[in-house]
Design a protein around this nucleic acid. Structure first.
Length: 367
DNA sequence: TACCCGTGGCC
DNA sequence: TGGCCAAGGGT
């Protein structure tokens, strides 16, 4: 490492911290630089919870969920003692539901094995379910104030532009990590990384970066060469295939419907859902949960997951005889406890209860 | 390593 | 409107 680069990195971090002091955004889990001076420390439980929610998820989406979780479970012990179903219901709509399952595992480890104290080292944090390299470094820097190399999508983008890294991601990630490590200051690491992420989210954005308002524009090689918007390069993504499936909405005049908890592993794992066929390329095999007079709705649900597109057909049946009621029937739920794709199907079904004329032709039910 | 795993907003 | 993107981690 050349002396010049070391000096430059220190200057960049100072500029960034000054910018953060003035323009850093308020967030429910953050302690502002002014409050830190007053002696207020970040709450590791808050930082951990926010970082898990923020994985692949924007701040605006997370804020409401964070507040709701903290309101329901103010301390990690409260979360550890929560019922799985309550936590999954509160996470519904946020996506990547393995995060919620791992959140509970970690809360129980922290509460029962660690007396409510989060590990102080990156290695200790990294051993917790759902805590990877990014999250361990972020908690180390933000919650504990210890130096760590934090590299998320924002910081990758800022580093690629600042140092004109033209090799595409993800191959360039080790290079970006090294650059991020060398740029990290010894003091105020938490504010520094949060400032870098704020910069990436508000100024150094993927499209149309606002370089005119960037505090480190004079240091940015991509800005100097006019390449900012085209960086970082990324390898082409695989196309998303389309799958098809059937979900089943069985209901009664008494306002009950059939719901099931999906298996803990896999897509929407652990979430409450309508009974469903497999989701397959081509024609799905019908899998009605009970024998009934199933009717096909003419409209389909369309939904896009990370790696495939889904067309869902909704089959409906009104259950009359109490002999058909079985485990799994429950009062019509608040749609918000369902994952979004099931929320869509549920809403479509409710519309068709109110307007039966929308229903399609009758089909044969039942195994 | 390559794949799996959600959702909402943007243009 | 379809692809891209977001404070990634697990297997």
């Amino acid at each position: 490492m050349s002396p010049n680069k070391s000096v430059t990195s220190a200057q960049i971090s100072i500029k960034l911290l000054h910018w953060y002091d003035e323009f850093g955004r308020e967030m429910p889990w953050r302690v502002s630089p002014a409050d830190q001076i007053r002696g207020i420390l970040p709450n590791p439980y808050h930082i951990w919870l926010s970082e898990i929610m923020l994985q692949q998820t924007q701040v605006v989406t997370v804020t409401g969920y964070f507040q709701a979780f903290l309101s329901n479970w103010p301390e990690v012990h409260d979360l550890a003692n929560a019922k799985d179903a309550d936590v999954m219901a509160r996470w519904a709509g946020l996506g990547y539901y393995a995060r919620a399952r791992n959140l509970l595992k970690t809360a129980r480890i922290i509460s029962k094995d660690f007396s409510g104290i989060f590990p102080k080292t990156e290695a200790g944090l990294r051993a917790l379910p759902g805590v990877g390299p990014y999250t361990a470094a972020a908690i180390t820097a933000i919650a504990h104030g210890q130096k760590a190399t934090v590299l998320d999508g924002n910081i990758e983008r800022v580093m690629a532009r600042l140092f004109l890294v033209t090799a595409p991601l993800p191959d360039s990630k080790p290079t970006l990590y090294d650059l991020a490590a060398k740029a990290t200051p010894d003091a105020r690491v938490g504010d520094y990384v949060q400032g870098l992420m704020d910069l990436g989210a508000t100024i150094c954005t993927p499209r149309s970066p606002d370089c005119g308002n960037c505090p480190i524009r004079p240091d940015c090689r991509a800005n100097a060469t006019g390449n900012a918007e085209s960086l970082p390069r990324k390898l082409a993504k695989k196309p998303k295939p389309t799958r098809n499936g059937i979900v089943y909405f069985a209901y009664t005049d008494a306002g009950k419907m059939l719901l099931e908890t999906r298996p803990q592993k896999g897509l929407l794992g652990g979430m409450l859902a309508l009974p469903s066929s497999e989701w397959v390329t081509g024609t799905p095999e019908p899998a009605p949960p009970i024998s009934a007079n199933w009717q096909v709705l003419p409209e389909q649900i369309r939904h896009v997951f990370t790696h495939f597109k889904l067309n869902l057909t909704v089959h409906m049946a009104k259950i009359s005889g109490p002999e058909q009621l079985q485990d799994g029937f429950a009062d019509f739920p608040d749609p918000n406890i369902l994952p979004t794709v099931m929320r869509k199907a549920y809403r479509l079904a409710l519309i068709n209860i109110k307007n039966p004329s929308r229903s399609g032709q009758k089909i044969k039910g039942a195994p």
